[in-house]
Design a protein around this nucleic acid. Structure first.
Length: 442
DNA sequence: TCTGGGGTCCTAGGACCC
DNA sequence: TCTGGGGTCCTAGGACCC
């Protein structure tokens, strides 16, 4: 069977997908160490304390939307005594790994889809009661990590996503829903509004509504041709998944990443070239370290700057600098990034945000040394130097060794993080020992 | 130099995800 | 909504080729 040149295999009738979704993930992580905040309103802020990235149910009920800038809802949050946390992302990463370990022990195939969601494929378990299995798994995850999850089970990934949402919203499901029969599937689709379908975003949803499509059930009725015209190839695939055909498979072995980005909103607007240079060099160095950690090289470095909103031209400008040959060397990448900075910097503007993106990544093993490189020893020395730098920085859990252009004084552009919780699990200095001792002597 | 059909590769921008 | 940050995929259009 063919569709727009993509060859599709349709032999997956027996597939059973489960989606495990951590509830209010960042909030739940914070609550593990603050049990006093159970049933209290809690929200977690983005890197710059700029906007809301996680809300407890209590905060959702206040009508505070996801992603809203903090200043717009500060009054509501204060009026209802909402506890705020600056995002403590290393902590959440640690919890995430613990949850994944449990899933890997429970299911034969696991795709880690994001920090708080995983898809499982469990048909080979040959279970008679998927709902019971999911409830037990849920119980286990909560006991071992303190994180509450919702689990949806169905015959496609898109339906499993919907089922997990259903389980999250309806208490009588006890956190797990299996869309088993044709009637279950229909109930699920009629319940799910079109904007909550996986793959339908804020742009497409209003368009569909205008054309009389309000629920996933409505969308499941449209023809391929109509879906193609309105939503493109991904839309066709989504519609077919809603009907129960498998189009999205489990991606178990992580494909290598195709780009690496390090970008930040600055603490204040920046006009000074020297300051910008420091920020861009730091981004470049961080991205390079990440690149090396996955044994990859980059062939091109993109940098971008976004002017403050008060300027007429406040859209980002960007430029891509190609390297002479693939590299993961911090010095080479910083040099390219600063060349890019020079090319787009405008002294009449001040900038709110900027970043470095390594595009066009290659596996380090697969890349051959350029024919024009006359001095392979020099390359080897450089790469040995990089290995030492990474080893030192890893050992001290910090970026102790840096390039001169990174400018040690980062205060100029550093993020605000005023409400950060302790690094409970990732820093010896902040382990909650005192609390533990107190508990044990009670 | 223009017309024309047909193809590839690259890039920028859009849409989506969490 | 644009005061987060980090990703992926698709598509239209331009450059270039025969």
């Amino acid at each position: 069977m063919k569709q727009n040149g993509h060859t599709i295999v349709c032999d997956s009738r027996g597939a059973v997908f489960a989606l495990v979704d951590c509830n209010n993930f960042f909030v739940s992580c914070e609550r593990v160490f603050r049990p006093d905040l159970w049933n209290k309103p809690v929200a977690v802020l983005s890197n710059n304390d700029g906007c809301i990235v996680a809300r407890s149910n209590e905060v959702k009920l206040l009508g505070v939307p996801m992603g809203i800038p903090l200043f717009k809802v500060r009054d509501v949050l204060e009026a209802h005594k909402v506890t705020l946390f600056s995002g403590n992302f290393p902590l959440y990463g640690d919890f995430s790994q613990r949850v994944v370990k449990i899933l890997q022990a429970a299911a034969p195939y696991v795709e880690v889809y994001s920090v708080d969601e995983s898809f499982l494929e469990i048909s080979s378990l040959r279970l008679s009661d998927y709902t019971g299995w999911a409830r037990a798994l849920r119980q286990c995850i909560f006991q071992w990590t303190g994180i509450p999850v919702s689990i949806g089970v169905a015959s496609t990934k898109t339906l499993a996503k919907a089922a997990a949402e259903y389980a999250k919203q309806l208490p009588e499901t006890e956190g797990a829903y299996h869309a088993q029969t044709e009637m279950d599937r229909e109930r699920l689709l009629k319940w799910l509004s079109v904007s909550d379908i996986w793959g339908i975003g804020w742009r497409t949803a209003p368009k569909l509504r205008q054309r009389g499509i309000a629920t996933a059930y409505d969308l499941a009725q449209v023809s391929d041709a109509w879906a193609q015209a309105q939503m493109g190839i991904r839309g066709v695939q989504t519609v077919r998944e809603l009907k129960g055909e498998v189009w999205f498979r489990l991606a178990t072995d992580r494909e290598p990443q195709k780009s690496i980005a390090r970008t930040r909103s600055f603490g204040h607007n920046m006009r000074n070239y020297y300051e910008l240079e420091g920020a861009i060099a730091t981004f470049a160095a961080q991205a390079s370290a990440k690149l090396r950690s996955q044994q990859e090289l980059t062939e091109a470095v993109m940098i971008f700057l976004r002017p403050a909103r008060r300027f007429e031209q406040y859209q980002s400008t960007s430029v891509v600098i190609r390297l002479m040959q693939p590299s993961a060397d911090t010095g080479v990448i910083i040099e390219a990034a600063l060349k890019g900075l020079q090319a787009i910097y405008d002294p009449d503007l001040s900038y709110k945000k900027g970043g470095v993106i390594l595009v066009d990544l290659k596996s380090a093993q697969a890349v051959q040394v350029s024919l024009f490189e006359t001095n392979p020893q020099r390359l080897e020395r450089q790469s040995a130097l990089m290995r030492s730098v990474d080893a030192i920085n890893k050992r001290f859990n910090t970026r102790l060794v840096r390039h001169a252009s990174e400018h040690i004084d980062r205060n100029a552009w550093h993020s605000k993080r005023e409400q950060r919780s302790p690094a409970y699990m990732t820093s010896w200095a902040e382990l909650p020992l005192v609390r533990a001792v107190r508990c044990s002597t009670k």
